[in-house]
Design a protein around this nucleic acid. Sequence first.
DNA 1: AATTATTTGCCATTCCTTTTCAAAGGTTAA
DNA 2: TTAACCTTTGAAAAGGAATGGCAAATAATT
Lengths: 161, 161
Amino acid sequence: MQRRCGKKDNWWCGRFKGLGYKLTFSRQAVLDVLSNTDSHLSAEEIYQRVYKLAPKVGLSSVYRTLELLVEIGLVSKYDFGDRRSRYELGQGIQGDNHHHHLVCTGCGKVLNYTDFIDQELELLKKTEKALSKKYNFRITNHLIQFYGVCRRCSDGKTAGI
Amino acid sequence: MQRRCGKKDNWWCGRFKGLGYKLTFSRQAVLDVLSNTDSHLSAEEIYQRVYKLAPKVGLSSVYRTLELLVEIGLVSKYDFGDRRSRYELGQGIQGDNHHHHLVCTGCGKVLNYTDFIDQELELLKKTEKALSKKYNFRITNHLIQFYGVCRRCSDGKTAGI
DNA sequence: AATTATTTGCCATTCCTTTTCAAAGGTTAA
DNA sequence: TTAACCTTTGAAAAGGAATGGCAAATAATT
Ligand SMILES: [Mn+2]
Ligand SMILES: [Mn+2]
Ligand SMILES: [Zn+2]
Ligand SMILES: [Zn+2]
């Protein structure tokens, strides 16, 4: 449309082309949004941010791009209980930003944490190994979330996202 | 409608009444279904089983009952990635049937496992304690799921639930 | 049996997500 | 560059899980 894949020739260009996918304007836009946030955006929220940069990109394309990104492992998709999926750039276990989540059931706030992540990973590794053998599963990923009530919410304040 | 709360005066009767909820026919039916399965049923599936015993019970009531059961902690609600919530009788961490899940991303099959559950719980306890303090969360629950591909699915067979 | 607040059934409705399909885009080869 | 080819897109409609509204039914209590 305007620019080709290039721009800053991001690290994901290679991954895309290698798999035979075209690095289109829409996809680039979604990736740009995802790489410029540290929160867990919904498809709609991503769409709104994409809209500011590229109003012609449709919501369907955002959904389709997200689906693709999840499939090729560039993005993780989460359910935090607010009835819509939320997305985050990052490549599962092997990524350097691997972390788990702390979710407030009062206001929906989500925190990343990495405390004890090493010990967690050690235990997970052991568990994975045993489960793989016992249940004949090839384990590829895991999900850990803690649920609780944040300070603000337990102080009576009703809500607030 | 036919029978009152009684029947066999199940263990959940007390819990219900204690909280001021009426133990109605519909609710009893949902609980009956949940207590007679070891799989992770969706609302629709629960409704279909309830329908066989009590065709007059509506889908809304099933949803409302499930919501209530989750709220009072008798039932756990899960998202295994197939775009509908799934429910399981059991009371979180303190229950004697506490377990975690192994999900096949190919066919959607879900296994319960309890291997290493003691060590997991130990680590979780430690983590919870640290996170509580650090992030000012009162932690009430946790979720652990492993994702992988089951034998059948990795053997090429396409699907099968 | 009468009373009363709760709960239900049966819609319709909401809202996230997917599908459809013709038009536009990117990629490669001439 | 141009042409050919397959992929991807945008707009709109459809799908589908879950929820809301309301009069009628019901469980618990008197
Ligand atoms: Mn995160
Ligand atoms: Mn289970
Ligand atoms: Zn909160
Ligand atoms: Zn499978």
